[in-house]
Every structure is written in structure tokens, then in C-alpha cells.
Simulated assay, not measured.
Amino acid sequence: MRVDIYRRAEHAGHFSYLAVPEGKIIPEEAINTDWELSDRGVDVDDDATQLPEFAIDDPHEQISAKGYAITSVKAI
């Protein structure tokens, strides 16, 4: 699967990341004017359980359930 990665600034110089299937728009419940495009067409292995560079857990499960995957609140 390929995804587009968006990011937004959080406290203390940290970022939250949002992964959306490549070419799709951010689903309405996740729209936030603070999201900015970070990376396009990032490859995600079919068996990936994490995207550690973006602190995203269970990317496939999150995308299947809600149309996007987001940084874990534990990582912010």
C-alpha cells in the first residue's frame, strides 16, 4: 500500500502524523487546517504493524477502520 503523509506541529517541537491512502483526501472527521503535506507515495509493507518514523501503530487496521492512520497519542 502507498500512503500520503501529513503532519501538524504539537507541543515541544513534536509532530503528529496522518497517513491517508495515496491520492485520497483526508476524511472529514480528520480535517484540520493545521495538517500539511509531508511525504507523498510512501510505501507501507503489507505486513507492517508500525510506521515508526511517524509513530503510527497498526496502519492497515486504522486505515481499514476509518480511512486514515494517525500517530499514537502515546508518542506525542
Rank of each mutant, 00 (worst) to 15 (best):
N32W: 14
G67K: 00
S16M: 10
A69T: 01
Q62Y: 05
V20F: 09
Q62R: 05
K66I: 05
S72K: 03
I56F: 04
I70K: 11
N32T: 14
W35E: 09
I70V: 15
G41A: 13
D34H: 11
V44L: 08
R2N: 15
I56V: 13
H11A: 15
D4G: 10
E10N: 11
R8H: 02
L37S: 11
A12H: 09
W35A: 09
L18F: 09
I76A: 07
I63N: 02
I31D: 10
L51R: 01
D45W: 01
L51K: 00
H60T: 04
Q50E: 09
D4M: 07
G13E: 08
I56G: 01
H60Y: 05
G23L: 13
E28I: 13
A65C: 00
K74L: 12
V20Q: 09
W35I: 12
K74N: 09
D58Q: 05
A75I: 04
S16G: 06
L51I: 11
N32P: 00
V73Y: 02
H11L: 13
G13K: 03
G41I: 03
E28K: 15
I31Y: 09
I76D: 09
E53F: 01
A30W: 05
S72R: 03
L37M: 15
Q62L: 06
I76P: 00
K66D: 04
S72N: 11
A69P: 02
R40T: 15
I25P: 07
R8L: 07
S38N: 15
S16I: 01
V42W: 07
A9M: 08
Q50T: 10
D47K: 08
E36I: 11
N32K: 12
E10Y: 01
A65M: 07
G41L: 02
V3E: 03
K24L: 14
I76F: 12
E29I: 12
A65K: 09
I26G: 08
A55N: 14
P52I: 02
V20H: 09
I31H: 13
E29A: 14
T49K: 08
D39Y: 05
L51F: 03
G67L: 03
G23I: 14
E28T: 14
G13P: 04
I26P: 04
R7I: 02
P59V: 03
D57C: 01
Y17G: 03
A48W: 03
V44T: 03
G41V: 06
P21I: 12
A65S: 11
S64E: 14
D47V: 05
V73W: 10
P27N: 13
V3L: 09
H60V: 03
G13S: 07
D4P: 13
V44C: 04
M1C: 07
T71D: 01
I56N: 02
I70A: 00
E29G: 09
T49Q: 12
N32H: 15
I76L: 15
P27Y: 04
A9Q: 13
G23Q: 13
D47L: 07
S64V: 03
